[in-house]
Simulated assay, not measured.
Amino acid sequence: MSEETIKQLQKLAITKRLNFLLGSGTSVPAIPLMGTYKDIDGKSANEQLSERVQEVSKRLLMKDELAERDIYTVLDNYQKFIEGVVTILNLSNSRQIPKNVNIFTTNYDLYIEKATDQILKKYRLVFNDGASGYFDRYLDSSNYNRTVSYKGLNDNYINEIPSITLIKPHGSMNWEEHNENILIKNEVVENPVIVKPDGYEASTTFESNHFHEMLRIFQMELDKPQSVLFVIGFSFQDKHIAKMVKRAVQNPELMVYVFGYSDDDRQMFLENLGFENERSNFIILTPKNFDDCYTNRYTDVENGDEWFSFTLSNLTNILMRIKLGDLKDDET
Protein backbone atom coordinates (compact mmCIF):
# COMPACT_ATOMS: atom_id res chain seq x y z
CA MET A 1 0.00 0.00 0.00
CA SER A 2 2.71 2.47 0.99
CA GLU A 3 4.82 2.25 -2.18
CA GLU A 4 1.71 2.56 -4.33
CA THR A 5 0.72 5.65 -2.35
CA ILE A 6 4.20 7.13 -2.75
CA LYS A 7 4.16 6.60 -6.53
CA GLN A 8 0.70 8.15 -6.79
CA LEU A 9 1.76 11.25 -4.82
CA GLN A 10 4.88 11.65 -6.94
CA LYS A 11 2.96 11.24 -10.17
CA LEU A 12 0.39 13.86 -9.17
CA ALA A 13 3.08 16.29 -8.03
CA ILE A 14 4.90 16.18 -11.33
CA THR A 15 1.98 16.02 -13.77
CA LYS A 16 -0.66 18.30 -12.22
CA ARG A 17 -0.94 21.96 -11.27
CA LEU A 18 0.74 21.79 -7.88
CA ASN A 19 -0.51 23.60 -4.79
CA PHE A 20 0.45 23.36 -1.12
CA LEU A 21 -1.44 24.58 1.93
CA LEU A 22 0.87 24.84 4.95
CA GLY A 23 -0.51 25.44 8.43
CA SER A 24 0.98 26.26 11.81
CA GLY A 25 2.12 22.67 12.34
CA THR A 26 4.93 23.11 9.83
CA SER A 27 6.69 25.70 12.03
CA VAL A 28 6.60 23.55 15.18
CA PRO A 29 8.56 23.29 17.48
CA ALA A 30 10.14 26.72 16.89
CA ILE A 31 6.67 28.28 17.05
CA PRO A 32 4.30 26.27 19.30
CA LEU A 33 0.69 25.75 18.31
CA MET A 34 -1.91 28.25 19.46
CA GLY A 35 -3.46 25.71 21.84
CA THR A 36 -0.30 25.56 23.93
CA TYR A 37 -0.62 29.21 25.00
CA LYS A 38 -2.80 30.39 27.91
CA ASP A 39 -3.77 33.87 29.03
CA ILE A 40 -1.28 34.80 31.73
CA ASP A 41 -0.12 37.95 33.56
CA GLY A 42 -2.57 40.12 31.67
CA LYS A 43 -1.26 38.96 28.31
CA SER A 44 -3.58 36.98 26.04
CA ALA A 45 -2.62 33.78 24.25
CA ASN A 46 -2.88 35.64 20.93
CA GLU A 47 -0.41 38.27 22.09
CA GLN A 48 2.04 35.64 23.27
CA LEU A 49 1.86 33.76 19.99
CA SER A 50 2.32 36.95 17.94
CA GLU A 51 5.33 37.90 20.04
CA ARG A 52 6.86 34.47 19.53
CA VAL A 53 6.36 34.63 15.76
CA GLN A 54 7.87 38.10 15.73
CA GLU A 55 10.85 36.99 17.82
CA VAL A 56 11.56 33.93 15.67
CA SER A 57 11.24 35.93 12.44
CA LYS A 58 13.69 38.54 13.70
CA ARG A 59 16.21 35.88 14.68
CA LEU A 60 15.92 34.30 11.23
CA LEU A 61 16.68 37.55 9.45
CA MET A 62 19.55 38.57 11.72
CA LYS A 63 21.15 35.09 11.64
CA ASP A 64 21.30 34.96 15.42
CA GLU A 65 23.83 32.22 16.19
CA LEU A 66 22.71 32.18 19.82
CA ALA A 67 19.11 31.37 18.92
CA GLU A 68 17.78 28.06 20.18
CA ARG A 69 18.34 25.02 18.01
CA ASP A 70 14.63 24.56 17.23
CA ILE A 71 14.57 27.76 15.16
CA TYR A 72 17.22 26.50 12.77
CA THR A 73 15.97 22.92 12.77
CA VAL A 74 12.66 24.19 11.40
CA LEU A 75 14.47 26.44 8.91
CA ASP A 76 16.39 23.42 7.65
CA ASN A 77 13.08 21.55 7.22
CA TYR A 78 11.70 24.40 5.14
CA GLN A 79 14.85 24.66 3.02
CA LYS A 80 14.76 20.97 2.18
CA PHE A 81 11.06 21.27 1.36
CA ILE A 82 11.65 24.17 -1.04
CA GLU A 83 14.49 22.23 -2.63
CA GLY A 84 12.14 19.27 -3.10
CA VAL A 85 9.61 21.57 -4.78
CA VAL A 86 12.30 22.86 -7.13
CA THR A 87 13.18 19.27 -8.02
CA ILE A 88 9.58 18.67 -9.06
CA LEU A 89 9.41 21.87 -11.11
CA ASN A 90 12.62 21.04 -12.97
CA LEU A 91 11.22 17.64 -13.94
CA SER A 92 7.76 18.82 -14.99
CA ASN A 93 6.79 19.40 -18.60
CA SER A 94 5.99 23.08 -19.19
CA ARG A 95 4.13 22.20 -22.40
CA GLN A 96 1.47 20.50 -20.29
CA ILE A 97 1.43 22.54 -17.09
CA PRO A 98 3.17 25.76 -15.97
CA LYS A 99 6.45 25.28 -14.11
CA ASN A 100 4.91 26.94 -11.09
CA VAL A 101 3.89 25.85 -7.62
CA ASN A 102 1.55 27.81 -5.37
CA ILE A 103 2.34 27.75 -1.67
CA PHE A 104 -0.52 29.01 0.47
CA THR A 105 0.26 29.41 4.14
CA THR A 106 -1.76 30.69 7.07
CA ASN A 107 1.51 31.26 8.94
CA TYR A 108 2.78 34.80 9.18
CA ASP A 109 6.34 33.91 10.13
CA LEU A 110 9.14 34.40 7.59
CA TYR A 111 10.35 30.82 7.32
CA ILE A 112 9.39 30.28 3.67
CA GLU A 113 10.91 33.60 2.62
CA LYS A 114 14.18 32.88 4.44
CA ALA A 115 14.36 29.30 3.17
CA THR A 116 13.70 30.34 -0.42
CA ASP A 117 16.33 33.07 -0.17
CA GLN A 118 18.87 30.36 0.61
CA ILE A 119 17.68 28.08 -2.19
CA LEU A 120 17.89 30.94 -4.72
CA LYS A 121 21.66 30.85 -4.27
CA LYS A 122 21.75 27.32 -5.67
CA TYR A 123 19.03 27.18 -8.34
CA ARG A 124 17.65 29.26 -11.17
CA LEU A 125 14.27 30.06 -9.71
CA VAL A 126 11.67 32.83 -9.62
CA PHE A 127 10.17 33.66 -6.24
CA ASN A 128 6.90 35.57 -6.51
CA ASP A 129 5.43 36.97 -3.29
CA GLY A 130 2.98 39.23 -5.14
CA ALA A 131 5.04 42.38 -4.74
CA SER A 132 6.05 44.92 -7.36
CA GLY A 133 8.44 47.82 -7.06
CA TYR A 134 12.12 48.26 -6.36
CA PHE A 135 12.82 50.28 -3.23
CA ASP A 136 9.15 50.28 -2.21
CA ARG A 137 7.58 46.88 -2.86
CA TYR A 138 3.78 46.85 -2.69
CA LEU A 139 1.51 43.81 -2.66
CA ASP A 140 -0.71 43.50 -5.72
CA SER A 141 -2.59 40.30 -6.52
CA SER A 142 -2.28 40.95 -10.26
CA ASN A 143 1.42 40.14 -9.92
CA TYR A 144 0.68 36.50 -9.16
CA ASN A 145 -0.33 35.55 -12.70
CA ARG A 146 3.10 35.71 -14.23
CA THR A 147 5.51 33.33 -15.92
CA VAL A 148 9.17 34.07 -16.58
CA SER A 149 11.18 32.51 -19.40
CA TYR A 150 14.85 32.35 -20.27
CA LYS A 151 15.81 32.69 -23.93
CA GLY A 152 19.06 31.70 -25.52
CA LEU A 153 21.67 34.30 -26.41
CA ASN A 154 20.67 34.02 -30.05
CA ASP A 155 16.94 33.84 -29.31
CA ASN A 156 17.05 30.25 -30.53
CA TYR A 157 15.07 28.75 -27.64
CA ILE A 158 12.84 29.71 -24.74
CA ASN A 159 12.70 27.83 -21.45
CA GLU A 160 10.20 28.62 -18.72
CA ILE A 161 12.00 29.25 -15.43
CA PRO A 162 10.55 27.36 -12.44
CA SER A 163 8.69 29.68 -10.11
CA ILE A 164 7.30 29.53 -6.59
CA THR A 165 4.30 31.69 -5.80
CA LEU A 166 3.83 32.48 -2.11
CA ILE A 167 0.35 33.54 -0.99
CA LYS A 168 -0.26 34.41 2.66
CA PRO A 169 -3.99 34.88 3.36
CA HIS A 170 -3.34 35.67 7.04
CA GLY A 171 -0.66 38.27 6.45
CA SER A 172 3.01 38.39 7.28
CA MET A 173 5.47 39.76 9.81
CA ASN A 174 7.05 41.94 7.12
CA TRP A 175 3.81 43.46 5.83
CA GLU A 176 3.21 47.08 6.78
CA GLU A 177 0.17 49.20 5.99
CA HIS A 178 1.02 52.30 3.99
CA ASN A 179 -1.57 54.61 2.46
CA GLU A 180 -4.19 51.82 2.37
CA ASN A 181 -1.72 49.53 0.62
CA ILE A 182 0.53 46.77 1.92
CA LEU A 183 4.25 47.45 1.79
CA ILE A 184 6.39 44.27 1.85
CA LYS A 185 9.64 45.02 3.63
CA ASN A 186 12.84 43.06 4.15
CA GLU A 187 12.52 43.27 7.92
CA VAL A 188 10.08 42.46 10.71
CA VAL A 189 7.86 45.50 11.22
CA GLU A 190 6.50 46.81 14.50
CA ASN A 191 2.81 46.59 13.59
CA PRO A 192 2.54 43.85 10.96
CA VAL A 193 -0.59 43.31 8.89
CA ILE A 194 -1.78 39.93 10.16
CA VAL A 195 -4.97 38.08 10.97
CA LYS A 196 -4.64 36.90 14.56
CA PRO A 197 -6.08 33.47 15.48
CA ASP A 198 -8.77 34.86 17.79
CA GLY A 199 -11.75 32.93 16.46
CA TYR A 200 -12.80 35.80 14.19
CA GLU A 201 -10.45 34.98 11.33
CA ALA A 202 -13.24 34.69 8.79
CA SER A 203 -14.76 38.12 9.47
CA THR A 204 -11.36 39.80 9.82
CA THR A 205 -10.12 38.29 6.59
CA PHE A 206 -13.14 39.26 4.53
CA GLU A 207 -13.16 42.80 5.95
CA SER A 208 -9.78 43.35 4.34
CA ASN A 209 -9.62 43.66 0.58
CA HIS A 210 -6.08 42.35 0.56
CA PHE A 211 -6.85 39.22 2.54
CA HIS A 212 -10.03 38.65 0.58
CA GLU A 213 -8.01 38.81 -2.63
CA MET A 214 -5.53 36.22 -1.29
CA LEU A 215 -8.38 33.81 -0.58
CA ARG A 216 -9.98 34.51 -3.96
CA ILE A 217 -6.73 33.45 -5.63
CA PHE A 218 -6.68 30.31 -3.48
CA GLN A 219 -10.18 29.44 -4.65
CA MET A 220 -9.39 30.17 -8.28
CA GLU A 221 -6.30 27.96 -8.28
CA LEU A 222 -8.27 25.05 -6.84
CA ASP A 223 -10.94 25.50 -9.51
CA LYS A 224 -8.42 25.07 -12.33
CA PRO A 225 -8.46 21.76 -14.19
CA GLN A 226 -5.87 19.08 -13.43
CA SER A 227 -4.89 20.50 -10.05
CA VAL A 228 -3.63 18.87 -6.88
CA LEU A 229 -3.52 20.30 -3.35
CA PHE A 230 -1.26 18.89 -0.65
CA VAL A 231 -2.23 20.01 2.86
CA ILE A 232 0.09 19.60 5.84
CA GLY A 233 0.30 21.15 9.30
CA PHE A 234 -3.26 22.42 8.91
CA SER A 235 -6.23 21.23 10.98
CA PHE A 236 -9.09 23.01 9.10
CA GLN A 237 -10.07 24.91 12.25
CA ASP A 238 -9.99 28.08 10.15
CA LYS A 239 -13.59 27.82 9.05
CA HIS A 240 -13.34 30.16 6.08
CA ILE A 241 -10.51 28.16 4.52
CA ALA A 242 -12.18 24.87 5.42
CA LYS A 243 -15.30 26.06 3.63
CA MET A 244 -13.26 26.89 0.53
CA VAL A 245 -11.61 23.47 0.47
CA LYS A 246 -15.01 21.84 0.96
CA ARG A 247 -16.36 23.76 -2.01
CA ALA A 248 -13.27 23.08 -4.11
CA VAL A 249 -13.57 19.28 -3.88
CA GLN A 250 -16.74 19.60 -5.92
CA ASN A 251 -14.32 20.08 -8.81
CA PRO A 252 -13.82 16.45 -9.95
CA GLU A 253 -10.48 17.33 -11.57
CA LEU A 254 -9.01 18.48 -8.24
CA MET A 255 -7.21 16.00 -6.00
CA VAL A 256 -6.72 16.93 -2.34
CA TYR A 257 -4.34 15.00 -0.12
CA VAL A 258 -4.29 15.90 3.56
CA PHE A 259 -1.39 14.67 5.69
CA GLY A 260 -2.07 14.12 9.38
CA TYR A 261 0.60 14.40 12.04
CA SER A 262 -0.86 11.40 13.89
CA ASP A 263 -3.44 8.72 13.14
CA ASP A 264 -5.91 10.52 15.43
CA ASP A 265 -6.00 13.50 13.05
CA ARG A 266 -8.15 11.71 10.48
CA GLN A 267 -11.37 12.03 12.47
CA MET A 268 -10.57 15.62 13.47
CA PHE A 269 -10.14 16.65 9.83
CA LEU A 270 -13.46 15.08 8.85
CA GLU A 271 -15.30 16.73 11.74
CA ASN A 272 -13.82 20.17 11.07
CA LEU A 273 -14.84 19.92 7.42
CA GLY A 274 -18.26 18.46 8.15
CA PHE A 275 -17.49 15.34 6.12
CA GLU A 276 -18.74 11.93 7.16
CA ASN A 277 -16.12 10.13 5.08
CA GLU A 278 -13.30 10.76 2.70
CA ARG A 279 -14.08 11.15 -0.98
CA SER A 280 -12.58 9.94 -4.20
CA ASN A 281 -10.76 13.24 -4.62
CA PHE A 282 -10.27 14.06 -0.92
CA ILE A 283 -7.89 11.64 0.76
CA ILE A 284 -6.43 11.75 4.27
CA LEU A 285 -3.07 10.10 4.86
CA THR A 286 -1.70 9.49 8.37
CA PRO A 287 1.38 7.60 9.60
CA LYS A 288 -0.38 4.23 9.33
CA ASN A 289 -0.68 4.72 5.56
CA PHE A 290 3.10 4.76 5.15
CA ASP A 291 5.92 2.35 5.78
CA ASP A 292 7.98 3.16 8.86
CA CYS A 293 10.80 4.59 6.74
CA TYR A 294 8.54 7.49 5.75
CA THR A 295 7.48 8.39 9.31
CA ASN A 296 9.02 9.42 12.62
CA ARG A 297 9.09 6.80 15.38
CA TYR A 298 8.79 7.61 19.08
CA THR A 299 8.89 5.40 22.15
CA ASP A 300 7.06 6.20 25.39
CA VAL A 301 9.75 5.96 28.10
CA GLU A 302 7.21 4.99 30.74
CA ASN A 303 5.45 2.05 29.10
CA GLY A 304 7.59 1.38 26.01
CA ASP A 305 4.69 1.96 23.60
CA GLU A 306 5.62 3.13 20.11
CA TRP A 307 3.85 5.78 18.09
CA PHE A 308 4.52 7.50 14.78
CA SER A 309 4.13 10.93 13.23
CA PHE A 310 4.19 12.41 9.71
CA THR A 311 5.68 15.89 9.26
CA LEU A 312 6.87 18.28 6.56
CA SER A 313 10.28 16.59 6.49
CA ASN A 314 8.60 13.25 5.73
CA LEU A 315 6.65 14.77 2.84
CA THR A 316 9.89 16.31 1.58
CA ASN A 317 11.58 12.91 1.58
CA ILE A 318 8.81 11.61 -0.68
CA LEU A 319 9.12 14.55 -3.08
CA MET A 320 12.91 14.31 -3.25
CA ARG A 321 12.71 10.65 -4.33
CA ILE A 322 10.95 11.51 -7.59
CA LYS A 323 12.59 9.95 -10.63
CA LEU A 324 11.06 10.07 -14.07
CA GLY A 325 11.88 6.45 -14.77
CA ASP A 326 10.10 5.27 -11.63
CA LEU A 327 6.82 6.97 -12.52
CA LYS A 328 6.37 5.07 -15.78
CA ASP A 329 3.85 7.56 -17.07
CA ASP A 330 3.72 8.69 -20.68
CA GLU A 331 2.74 12.21 -19.63
CA THR A 332 6.08 12.72 -17.86
Results as ranks from 00 to 15, higher is better:
Leu61Phe: 00
Arg95Pro: 14
Asp76Lys: 12
Leu61Val: 03
Ala67Tyr: 06
Ser94Tyr: 12
Lys80Arg: 13
Lys63Gln: 12
Ile88Ser: 02
Asn77Cys: 06
Leu66Glu: 15
Asp70Met: 12
Ile71Gly: 01
Met62Trp: 15
Phe81Ala: 00
Glu68Val: 09
Phe81Ser: 00
Tyr78Ala: 01
Leu75Asn: 00
Arg95Glu: 14
Ile97Leu: 08
Arg69Gly: 08
Gln79Ala: 07
Val86Glu: 02
Ser94Ile: 05
Tyr72Pro: 02
Leu91Asn: 11
Glu68Pro: 10
Asn93Met: 06
Ala67Thr: 12
Ser94Trp: 08
Arg95Ile: 11
Leu91His: 13
Arg95His: 13
Asn93Arg: 06
Met62Phe: 14
Arg69Val: 15
Val74Ile: 04
Leu91Tyr: 13
Asn90Ile: 05
Arg69Gln: 14
Asp76Pro: 04
Asp64Cys: 06
Glu68His: 14
Leu66Phe: 12
Glu65Asp: 11
Arg95Leu: 14
Ile71Cys: 01
Met62Ile: 15
Met62Tyr: 15
Phe81Thr: 03
Arg95Asp: 14
Ile82Trp: 00
Glu65Asn: 12
Gln96Ala: 13
Asn77Tyr: 08
Ile97Pro: 01
Tyr78Trp: 05
Gly84Glu: 01
Arg69Lys: 14
Met62His: 15
Gln96Asp: 14
Val86Ile: 04
Asn77Arg: 14
Ile82Leu: 01
Asn93Tyr: 02
Asp64Ala: 09
Thr73Trp: 12
Thr87Ile: 10
Ser94Thr: 11
Lys63Ile: 09
Leu66Asp: 12
Arg95Phe: 14
Gln79Tyr: 04
Thr87His: 12
Glu68Ser: 13
Glu65Arg: 13
Glu83Thr: 09
Asp64Pro: 03
Glu65Tyr: 08
Asp70Phe: 01
Asp70Ile: 05
Leu66Thr: 15
Leu61Gln: 06
Leu60Thr: 07
Thr87Asn: 13
Ile82Gln: 00
Ile97Asn: 07
Ser94Val: 09
Val85Trp: 08
Tyr72Glu: 01
Leu60Lys: 01
Tyr72Lys: 05
Leu75Lys: 09
Ile82Gly: 02
Leu66Cys: 10
Arg69Tyr: 14
Ser92Gly: 03
Asn90Lys: 07
Glu68Lys: 11
Thr87Val: 10
Ile71Asp: 02
Ser92Glu: 04
